[in-house]
Design a binder for these strands. Sequence first.
DNA 1: GAACCGGCTCGTCAATTCAT
DNA 2: ATGAATTGACGAGCCGGTTC
Length: 263
Amino acid sequence: MLNLSCLVASVGMEGMVEENGTSGGAGGADPLAGAGAAGPAHVVAVTTMQAPAQVQSVIQANQQSVIQTASNIQSVQLPKGNVILVSKPSSVIHTTQGTLQTLQIKPEPNTLMSSQGQSCSDDSCSDDESPKRKYREMLTRRPSYRKILNDLGGAEIAVIPAGALQAEGGLHTLSVSGGAGGGAIVQYATTNQDGQFYVPEDQTRKRELRLLKNREAARECRRKKKEYIKCLENRVAVLENQNKALIEELKSLKELYCQQKTE
DNA sequence: GAACCGGCTCGTCAATTCAT
DNA sequence: ATGAATTGACGAGCCGGTTC
């Protein structure tokens, strides 16, 4: 885990905060990263001091911050002294220079901090800036959807109820309840009368348990991926609207300028 | 109706990361 | 070091639309 004080220091220096971000999908197989030329986009949960509501936001490099709530969409200008609380360890925040003055990051209780141009102490950064570590992070795959979106809520991974495993002669039936796809029955042979291909029952049960867990994990992963994509699509809509408004503004300003010039 | 196709979902495997 | 968690990749199956 990168040390957060190092990241906060970069806010004052460059107007940018980055923590555990992907390197634009360089190493990981991320079909979603790099969709925009501006850099990695991450979803963060943001709370402002003035409007303490939980919102979801995707913030992109070299762009004005767009903070998007669950109910409506709003772009937010951050005056001096405002605080953004970022509860996602894998968040990336890029702002226009000078807009973001103070930042608090609270992935863990002990790491809460605020800073403007705070420098990074050697103690806190030495371990995380080794070449080996940096190289590993270059190759790391994208942050998990859980990290990106775990504030969006959703279905819990189903817990196997006690007694779900039951023996039925030569076959074992594993009843699975819950989950988006409804119930499922998995059957598997455990014995062979000729003594061939014998698989110890304990191992077979372990395998079934692993498959069940992975099945649920895959469902959850796909759900998170869908939400992530939905979030990106929302952001596209927001930015398209912003772009349209800016073009209109530019147009009217140009007209005004030409008008004054001719007078 | 049969055959084909494309899109979608799901389960599984394997590689990788994370947590202890 | 090790087990758990995460997620990309792959194949199978289902479904609706299209063509013959």
